[in-house]
Design a protein around this nucleic acid. Structure first.
Lengths: 227, 227
DNA sequence: ATACAAACTATTGTAGACAATAGTCCAACA
DNA sequence: TGTTGGACTATTGTCTACAATAGTTTGTAT
């Protein structure tokens, strides 16, 4: 699940090869544990235990936790350590509204698309979705769906916007990992699920921003009306 | 400058008293140094030097730098340390577009205002702006202007939205500290500057979202057309 | 004189240990 | 029996020291 994400995160552009520091690796590992449900919401993150699991010492782990804290996956109370964030329905509301708002901004900034290469990324992500749907690989579908939406946002060529979106999507995945409604959604026809995204991309490729916004609204409503 | 900001950041709501950790203090101090121009964009942040200045050891400082890294004020290259972020014109474009987009979202979510207390915060911030303008306290005016815009965004009662906005505004302040256009803007009549914000608040109080959006667009355009 | 290589220095990355605090449990008293 | 006080333990906060790396400078050879 996270492997696909790092693939997205790696899109820093230039080919400068940067040996990932232990901090980055630790952050990735803990993030993966959280999103995989290995660490449950509200659970205390005992530093010493994590260091033993990861085979590192505390300083890099603590720095990694600071990163996750800013990402919104971990909350840190002074003198009381870190815990996995617990998302209330209020939080879910915030995440969903921000998400749709950011997507809207991205469309307004990025459609019609100038750089064809960016569209190609969307197409490939959609193809991956379809492949996962046919294989009934629900985990892969979630991951590919993330890549697809991220690629749509990336059409704007707006680094900070994409960064915010990705950070937010992490939290959304955390909801989805736990929440009932998503599981239910996943009993809908997987092909239909992909088709809806296909339609969205079609409208994007056609290049009319207003039409995309309408499609996006419909898409979002269908996705989250059950909340 | 930063004192006023922490005042805003402290708005975590509840009265739970949390002894600030060295990490938080260090992050605040370094942020202040950066925004005050004490540390210039592109400048390397030598850890040992900062520790001596702040009188702390490296681990908490490093964690603070991780926070600032996620806030976008500091960039960290593995094995090569941290530097103050250098904002290109592309970055400024990103910051300004995101800023206006987030403000728009906030208005759409928060106008008309339900909680009168939130409006009161706006009014007080505006009063502070006017006081600073009359005293020709340009530094204070910048700070109060930040508080005003933050309070407008806070009308939405959307924690994540406000957090993103604040983080972005830090970077905007970093531009403003350096960039020419702002200095020029500040030779305009300070009272007029405040008046423009007054008009914005008036429209907000009137409660028509569409009118606010228009006012906001005009406001933004006047503020940044010179970019 | 210039280019390349090797050593050196400055700085970051990581580790382990110590200090301080918060939560918990048990006992004693009202 | 309920409550308060104190000690204990687990965990975080912080510091010092060591290892590793990148940048720089100097020397030598062509």
């Amino acid at each position: 699940m996270v492997s696909g994400m790092s693939q997205v995160d790696d899109a820093t552009g230039l080919g400068r090869l940067e040996p990932k520091s232990l901090v980055q690796l630790a952050a990735d590992a803990v993030r993966k544990k959280i999103l995989a449900g290995d660490l449950e919401p509200g659970e205390r993150l005992i530093e010493e235990r994590l260091t033993k699991e990861l085979g590192i010492s505390r300083p890099p782990l603590r720095e990694a936790l600071r990163l996750l804290q800013q990402e919104g996956l971990v909350v840190n109370q002074p003198r009381r350590g870190s815990t996995v964030v617990e998302l209330t329905s209020e939080d879910v509301y915030e995440i969903l509204t921000l998400r749709s708002g950011l997507e809207r901004m991205a469309v307004e900034l990025g459609v019609p698309v100038q750089d064809p290469a960016r569209l190609e990324v969307c197409r490939q992500a959609l193809a991956r979705m379809r492949a996962c749907a046919q294989a009934e690989d629900r985990g892969g579908l979630v991951e590919a769906g993330y890549a697809f939406h991220a690629s749509i946002v990336a059409l704007a060529g707006h680094g900070r916007l994409s960064a915010m979106y990705n950070s937010l999507y992490q939290q959304l995945l955390l909801c989805m990992a736990r929440n009932l409604y998503v599981r239910e959604r996943f009993y809908e026809d997987l092909e239909t699920h992909v088709d809806r995204h296909q339609e969205l991309l079609d409208v994007v490729e056609r290049g009319d921003p207003k039409a995309v916004l309408e499609a996006l609204a419909a898409h979002g409503e269908r996705s989250f009306s059950s909340m």
